[in-house]
Design a protein around this nucleic acid. Sequence first.
DNA 1: GACTTGACTAGAC
DNA 2: AGTCTAGCCAAGT
Length: 121
Amino acid sequence: MIFRAAVYRLVRRIPPGQVATYGQVAALIGRARSARAVGGAMGRCPDDVPWHRVVNAQGAISRRRRQSGMLTQRIRLEQEGIALRRGRVPLARYQWEPSRADRYGRPAARRRTGGLACDWR
DNA sequence: GACTTGACTAGAC
DNA sequence: AGTCTAGCCAAGT
């Protein structure tokens, strides 16, 4: 499975009105240390991928090299009923809690940094 | 195959 | 709560 294809397949399963973090997406496809690469994949995704449902670990909309897109993301989230508080999505309320069937692999062992424990569940 | 570039993250101040 | 750093890694050149 190509990395990006795995990312897109998973992101398509995020329900409307909920969000996931880059690190969470990475962990769910069994690549717990690839959060950064997930961001790269989101930048060039097919139109049917709900990219706006992916935010960073703080619940904020990550900055792009070019600002364009950040506003669109916020608007789309709000259209799905997600209210941002102080510029961030309250993850405690909106973060996706995937069922076991939505998980493809077990998170990699955590190294010094970059790897995520299963704390998003 | 050796860089370079990010829509990343956890920890340490 | 902000800023900085060190790790991480897929893709593109």
